[in-house]
Amino acid sequence: MSETETWMSTPLSSTEPWMVVGLGNPGPEYAGNRHNIGFMVADLLAERIGGTFKRSGKAQAQVLEGRIGPPGPASRRVVLAKPMAWMNLSGGPVTALKDFYKVPTDRIIAVHDELDIDFGTLRLKLGGGDNGHNGLKSITKSLGANYLRVRAGIGRPPGRMDVAAFVLKDFGSAERKDLDWFVDRAADAVEALVSDGLERAQGAYNS
């Protein structure tokens, strides 16, 4: 049985919450960076829910509680989170929030930038390696690898440009033309994971 089949075979409880973690670096100077696309997706989901992020008293993070899905019993309780620690320390806030809200690890969705996927492309998966991403590396060290990921492609740096410099630069002018669409699609993918499960969401969004 594959990881996807194992995950799909577990009945979805309407009472256990989900947690969506948008990964990024705190501070206005990083807001438009490629590395902060997870924050961008989390901010859009907050708009859709109709709430405002507030500083958590339980972790170094901004948090918003709400529901995703159609109104009524089919909707799912969700905790949106943006760690306010540096990217490479994301595991601490995520673990504290997981413990406080009692979120199963396989109901945590990390939204992050992905170098090995072209800009504008999404990949959804459960588990796996961190591919050198410091935010994932920190979360995996704290929780293990059995959490969901929405991998938002940003592509590789041009020429010999350093990877760290590339991810900490703002999206280029050509990318910004499609950035709103891409963030919107990534937010849709998160909602599909929560409402429809991994297999259906992969079928719809693993473009």
Rank of each mutant, 00 (worst) to 15 (best):
A31Q: 13
A74N: 12
V190Y: 12
H35W: 08
D99C: 04
K98I: 15
A186Y: 12
W7Q: 06
L198C: 04
M87T: 15
D180C: 05
G197N: 12
N33V: 02
A187F: 11
H112K: 15
Y30D: 01
E3L: 13
P11W: 10
N134C: 15
R77T: 15
G32H: 06
W18S: 04
L179V: 06
H133C: 12
R151N: 08
G128R: 01
S173M: 04
P158Q: 06
L198V: 06
D162M: 07
R156H: 12
D162G: 10
M1I: 09
L148A: 04
Q202R: 11
I37V: 12
K125M: 02
F182T: 10
G172N: 13
R156A: 10
P28I: 02
L198M: 10
K177D: 12
L126D: 02
Y30Q: 05
P157V: 00
V41H: 12
G128Y: 01
S142F: 11
G132L: 03
D130R: 00
A74K: 12
D188E: 15
D43W: 04
A201E: 02
T105H: 08
I154N: 01
G203R: 08
A46Q: 08
G132D: 10
V78P: 13
Y147C: 03
M40N: 12
T15I: 02
A165M: 06
M1S: 14
Y205K: 04
R176W: 05
D99S: 14
F100E: 09
G22I: 05
E5Y: 08
L193E: 07
S75K: 13
G159S: 05
A31H: 02
S2H: 15
T140V: 06
G155S: 03
G120E: 02
S56V: 00
V63C: 01
G203W: 05
M84Q: 09
E29D: 10
D188Y: 14
